[in-house]
């Protein structure tokens, strides 16, 4: 951050404009940003507010932006509806955390390694793999899910945790993002490490990745978020193997009559990724504040 201020001071010196005008511009930008933030946060705010509204308040006229008698009944209702006779709610929580943690770790490690090779090691086939990864992002087809199911069935892992985890092990989005980010690094750092006798694996994890904290943390956020929201409905049949999104979705999907429960479910599902997001962001900003130098 200190460097950021530095550069600002520098170009203020270089600028001929009076400082007052710049300050006015700053205030204008801040007001616009604030208005946009308000628009973005309003639906989330309404979701939270409605999740603690009792039923009679949700459909009151005129609709209110605040709650008169806050209640947790929507949350208790959600837990009650979600709990199966044989499977306690905590089982779904455990399943979700397990699947999400494994997928996030695998995705980040796998995609970092291939992204480094694609960006900085010009091996035969790199360009071809690159274009396949981008093309796979563009090919959206509902037939793929059927084919994926066939592959899972051939492997004999339908209705197991592996059926949830393995198809998500390779994320082209993460590779694409990481590759783009690593390609900005100067080649000289990698060449220097090579001269020192470091192998590719060590260069990747000890030289490149410590410099890629912002991208790595973004990767963690993306991976966590997509894993947390995996709907395993079509590959998991045992109640004891189901994850939160599937059961929570079932509880919330009864139309507007269960609006309160749906809101509670949404807030409940929102909290873990939001916490991960805040931790990752703070980590990025702090590390960049103290070691923003790259060469």
């Amino acid at each position: 951050m200190s460097q950021n201020i530095n550069s600002k001071e520098l170009h203020m010196k270089a600028s001929n404009k009076p400082v007052v005008k710049r300050r006015f511009g700053n205030i204008l930008v801040f007001i616009l940003l604030f208005a946009a933030a308000l628009f973005m946060i309003l639906p989330i705010y309404l979701t939270v507010i409605m999740s603690i509204k009792p039923v009679q308040e949700i459909f009151v006229f005129p609709p209110k932006l605040y709650v008169l008698e806050p209640t947790l009944s929507n949350y208790t209702n959600m837990f009650r509806i979600c709990s199966d006779e044989s499977v306690p709610f905590s089982r779904y929580v455990f399943n979700s955390i397990y699947v999400t943690a494994v997928i996030t770790i695998i995705q980040v490690i796998f995609s970092s390694m291939i992204a480094f090779c694609l960006a900085k090691v010009k091996f035969p086939g790199a360009k071809f793999i690159n274009s396949i990864i981008v093309i796979s992002l563009l090919y959206q087809s509902n037939v793929i899910y059927i084919m994926q199911y066939i592959v899972l069935a051939k492997m004999g892992i339908v209705n197991s945790m592996a059926a949830l985890i393995l198809p998500s092990a390779a994320s082209p989005i993460c590779v694409f993002l990481m590759r783009q980010s690593i390609s900005q690094m100067p080649d000289s750092i990698i060449e220097a490490a090579k001269v020192d006798g470091a192998g590719l694996f060590r260069i990747c994890w000890q030289v490149v990745m410590p410099n890629q904290k912002p991208a790595l943390m973004t990767l963690v956020i993306f991976a966590f978020q997509s894993a947390w929201n995996i709907q395993g409905g079509s590959v998991i049949f045992d109640e004891s193997l189901k994850t939160l999104p599937t059961v929570v979705q079932q509880a919330a999907s009864a139309g507007l009559s269960r609006a309160g429960v749906a809101m509670a479910a949404a807030v409940f599902m929102l909290v873990p990724p939001a916490v991960i997001f805040i931790i990752a962001q703070r980590h990025v900003i702090e590390t960049m504040a103290y070691s923003g130098i790259k060469e």
Binding site: I109, F110, S111, M113, I114, F116, C117, L118, V121, F123, I129, I132, I133, S136, Y139, S141, I144, M147, Q148, I150, V151, L166, P167, A169, A170, P172, V175, G199, L200, F201, C204
Partner: peptide
């Protein structure tokens, strides 16, 4: 060689669950 080893884990699952279904 080492580059191919490093892309192997991703490519394995990518092939199985994206390329083959596509």
């Amino acid at each position: 060689r080492s580059a191919y080893l490093m892309i192997l884990p991703f490519m394995l699952f990518f092939t199985l669950f994206t390329i083959v279904p596509v």
